[in-house]
Each structure stands twice: as structure tokens, then as C-alpha cells.
Design a protein around this nucleic acid. Structure first.
Length: 188
DNA sequence: GGAACGATCTGC
DNA sequence: CAGATCGTTCCC
């Protein structure tokens, strides 16, 4: 098991805050795009809001695989969202990446987004900016062209724990996390 | 076979 | 606040 998979073999609620500050690196033919994870949301199998709640299907199969892979899904007929699979094989849990702070490749991101503001402050926006689509579903995040670079966990005082956003179930559950005073988090 | 809906975003 | 837009799931 890679170092990445070892760290991610844990509960999504513990990992969601721990992953804040880590980097998402996207390699493209035109150069590298880098973003810092600033907002996450935990999804575990026993939560009714999770895609894995009703068991394994072709769509959510990656969630039930080993940790350290990307679960990318298509929604609303036009958007992609990217998760980091967590936990052990057979478990069905993941951490949704909800927002990034753009660090490198902003020109690329703006081109992919078709605008030069609000590049990565939302789960579907960041996928568009990093050109993440279903072809990366099941991709091993320890290697290009999409890499998760773990950083040290943020201090507890830097993390805000909050309730869910944009979901019809479990709106009260405090499983959303973001970096305090960060201007790049998603909007309500 | 068909209907309902969604871990969203945008522009009015 | 409604529309876009289609894959997935669930029910008949």
C-alpha cells in the first residue's frame, strides 16, 4: 500500500479536516495546474445523503474500492464533482473536494472555466477548472495526471466545522470543513 | 419503458 | 429564482 493509501485508510469524517491544505495537482499538455484544498465534505456509507448509502452500483463502485482513488461523478446533466476515496475496500466512503485555492496555472483554469473569476470555489467549478471529468473516475491519486500531494494537517484552530451545503438530506450534519477566513470557499 | 431527481452553476 | 440537461435509479 502506498503512503497515500495508508493515510487515507481512515474514516472520511476524520480525513475531511485533515486533507485541508493538501494539494491537488493536474498535469495537462499545456502545463501544471495546482490548487490547495480549502473546503471538504465527508460522506460515509451509513449517511443517507451518500451515493453509497443504498449499496454498490456501477456508478458508485469506486467508492467501495481501496482508499486513494478518485471518485468522479456526473450530475445535473452537466457537472462533474471529485471525491477522494477513503477507508478500506468494501466500505463505500469518500471526501468530496468542495473548493480549492488556485496556486498555479490560473490562465489554464480561466480558459477551462470561460471566465477569470470564481475559478475553483465550488465542487463543479474546480472540476471544470482542472479539466476533471469521468475519464478520471477510478484514477489512482498517487500518480499523474491527477495527484493528491499530502501536506501536514492544519492546526485545529484553523479549521471550521460546519453543516452541509446544497443537499436535501442531512443538512444538519456537521460534516463540512473549511479553512478559517479563507476567501476561496464555496458560496451558499 | 418511463418518470423523477440530483453532493450545481449561471444569468436574469 | 428558474432553467439548463442527462445519467442513474427506482418503480411499474
Amino acid at each position: 500500500m502506498s503512503n497515500l493509501a495508508t493515510v487515507l485508510d481512515d474514516s472520511p469524517v476524520r480525513l475531511a479536516p485533515r486533507l485541508l491544505g493538501s494539494l491537488l495537482v493536474r498535469d495537462t499538455p499545456h502545463g501544471q495546474i495546482v490548487g490547495r484544498i480549502v473546503e471538504t465534505e465527508a460522506y460515509h456509507q451509513s449517511g443517507v445523503a451518500s451515493h453509497s448509502y443504498r449499496g454498490q452500483t456501477p456508478r458508485n463502485a469506486v467508492m467501495f474500492g481501496p482508499a486513494g482513488f478518485a471518485y468522479v461523478y456526473f450530475t445535473y446533466g452537466m457537472h462533474y464533482c471529485c471525491n477522494i476515496v477513503t477507508g478500506t475496500k468494501g466500505e463505500g466512503s469518500a471526501v468530496l473536494i468542495r473548493a480549492l485555492e488556485p496556486l498555479e496555472g490560473m490562465e489554464q483554469m480561466a480558459k477551462n472555466r470561460g471566465r477569470d473569476d470564481e475559478l475553483t470555489n465550488g465542487p463543479a467549478k474546480l472540476c471544470q477548472a482542472l479539466n476533471i471529468d469521468k475519464s478520471l473516475n477510478g484514477h489512482d491519486l498517487s500518480m499523474p495526471p491527477l495527484t493528491l500531494v499530502l501536506k501536514d494537517p492544519p492546526k485545529e484552530s484553523e479549521v471550521v466545522q460546519s453543516t452541509r451545503i446544497g443537499i436535501s438530506h442531512e443538512q444538519h450534519q456537521p460534516w463540512r470543513f473549511y479553512l478559517k477566513d479563507c476567501e476561496f470557499i464555496s458560496k451558499k
